[in-house]
């Protein structure tokens, strides 16, 4: 159910169009890997931009802030899906068999583990940065990644072999 309200005042992106496009695509990549769905990834990034966009000028580092917002948005969707399982999330991307297996294995990880894995190995974030995003200790991040890697080991071993 939606409730439209009045249009917002335009706000300018602080930076070049190229940077904006790169940032947007990076957010799409993060959201896609976290959710496994192109449609959901687009919705997530769009929602985040709608929410954060008007405040963009007041942010010190919009790209980082947006990434945190995307991860949190994915976690929020995940919780909602757990509480009220609705129609299955569309698996709308055609992937190679190896990637399909990786995507499915990622989807089986608890979302906090999955987020830690994605932030570390897709976004090259440090333990401290990941801890800040996930709201936990750095030691917890290491534990999350350790457990996530352990679960993914079988799939990754197939790739290496």
């Amino acid at each position: 159910m939606t409730e439209p309200t009045a249009p917002r005042q335009p706000v300018e992106w602080v930076g070049s169009d190229a940077v904006y496009a790169d940032t947007y695509r990076h957010l799409l990549r993060v959201a896609f890997v976290l959710t496994g769905s192109t449609q959901t990834a687009e919705d997530v990034v769009h929602d985040v931009m709608c929410t954060v966009g008007p405040r963009m000028g007041s942010l010190d580092d919009p790209a980082v802030y947006l990434r945190v917002a995307v991860v949190n948005r994915c976690r929020s969707l995940h919780r909602r899906a757990i509480r009220a399982p609705a129609p299955e999330m569309s698996i709308d991307a055609q992937l190679d068999p190896g990637l399909t297996e990786l995507r499915d294995e990622l989807a089986r990880l608890p979302l906090k583990q999955r987020s830690a894995i994605v932030l570390r190995y897709l976004c090259d974030q440090s333990d401290a940065d990941i801890a800040a995003v996930l709201g936990c200790r750095e030691a917890t991040v290491r534990s999350l990644i350790h457990r996530g890697l352990k679960d993914l080991r079988r799939t990754l071993s197939k790739v290496t072999s």
């Binding site: 939606t2 409730e3 439209p4 309200t5 009045a6 249009p7 917002r8 005042q9 335009p10 706000v11 300018e12 992106w13 904006y20 496009a21 947007y24 695509r25 799409l28 990549r29 993060v30 959201a31 896609f32 890997v33 192109t38 990834a41 687009e42 769009h46 931009m49 709608c50 966009g53 008007p54 963009m56 991307a93 055609q94 992937l95 990637l99 990786l102 995507r103 897709l122």
Partner: peptide
Amino acid sequence: LADHAPTNVRAFDEIVAGPVVR
């Protein structure tokens, strides 16, 4: 895997000036 993510970038002006869907 991320390379299969969508690449359609919506214009910033289009997003922030559009109706808020709450």
